[in-house]
Design a protein around this nucleic acid. Sequence first.
DNA 1: CAGTGGTCTAGACCACCCT
DNA 2: GGGTGGTCTAGACCACTGG
Lengths: 246, 246
Amino acid sequence: MGAEVLMEERSSFLPAYYRLAEDLRARIESGELKPGSMLPSVAQLAARYGVSTMTVRQGLALLAKRGYLKTVQGKGSFVTAPRRDLLALRLGDSFLLGESKDVQVKLLELRVVPASPEVAEKLGVEEGAKVIAIRRLLLREGVPVALDLRFLPYLKGVPLLEKELAYAAFPDLVAQHAELFCVKSTLEVSARLLAKEEAEALAAPAGSPGLCLEQTIFAPDGRPVGWSRMVCRGDRFTLKAVSHPF
Amino acid sequence: MGAEVLMEERSSFLPAYYRLAEDLRARIESGELKPGSMLPSVAQLAARYGVSTMTVRQGLALLAKRGYLKTVQGKGSFVTAPRRDLLALRLGDSFLLGESKDVQVKLLELRVVPASPEVAEKLGVEEGAKVIAIRRLLLREGVPVALDLRFLPYLKGVPLLEKELAYAAFPDLVAQHAELFCVKSTLEVSARLLAKEEAEALAAPAGSPGLCLEQTIFAPDGRPVGWSRMVCRGDRFTLKAVSHPF
DNA sequence: CAGTGGTCTAGACCACCCT
DNA sequence: GGGTGGTCTAGACCACTGG
């Protein structure tokens, strides 16, 4: 039997919960079921589609995950308008610098230094406490694009791998160094003029604009365990985000 | 022994599938189960926890949704390292301008105009085609913060509500006007110097930096149905994002 | 109270993967 | 073939909501 026949068979024998979900989705998108209105109960849907309640619930869960409806215990399932103002943003050097393959990272500095007042405040440590400082220059097609400063609390006896240092996304680097399975992070994006040293490092004219990305990494308990500031040449860098891909 | 444990679990407050998920999560986060390794099979977990396979699968689905594992048909369930480089960004005026309640929006312009070359390209329409142009000024505590330009293809007979015009998030505005249930969007963030007119509108000194947010809205079929450019004073505006919470 | 969703069972059969 | 997850049943009981 050919593969094509197999595929066609498969597409005509979709699971019951999936067909139910598609059916409801179509009725929602067409406007037949409006946001806020209540869907038929699980029992009614089960009877109507000739399936068991578990199967109905599986279909409803699928639509709920995709943002089409919300189920409320003791009340019913209700059509919801999808969130349209939620965007997903991916950080990480390879993503930040575009799909271009010609990306270089130059490790400018790696030292244990006493925390400056700013770093101490961001990391929640005493001023002057030992922190690891990493300075990197990111280039695309040989041209400087961004200057990246990263700070982590110093942990004795925990090595940093050279490869990770240069290329890992900051949350991954922090997670690895602090031996945490998961971390949370925040990002603040702002525009400002490049400072003198930044302009020099980025080979940019004085007074040119820069995009500033400040990222703070938190342990699951809420303790800050990393802080970074990346400054990018405004004329060579844009940050991209896409609406929720669920 | 399994029966006793089962009884205690059942009389406790939390559902069995949730307890199972928490148990596995703890074992994953502690490092006992490492990323890439295979979890016990559904049948094994069912026997071990004294529950049915459906319950086990419900627990695994919960962890999968949260990014702790991935199930593969015919092979098994595998621990996955959580995505740490994924951030969530919320747009919308009230969010953009911070939690401050003192936010004003001034509608500067609302006209049907012929599409400029730039707008025509962004919206995928003929140059000179009729488009709706909206210009808004956003103020916080009485001070100009951002200047927002929005363009939509002109649809005859479809009204725009004044209230929506001023305050709606752009994707919502587009969705309502184009009568679409859901839309997709992209965002590009860049830094640049304010143009002369922008600086004037924002009461900013010439040559000061601005954060530029360009948003394109797409219909589900991929057709662009809206484009906006918001320019913000660099000294009064930062964009904030948070790592994806589940 | 009746109606709703939430959890759960103890199986069944299917689709898939590897050997 | 033997192991895996995926789907599905026909019920059961529980928790919650609102009149």
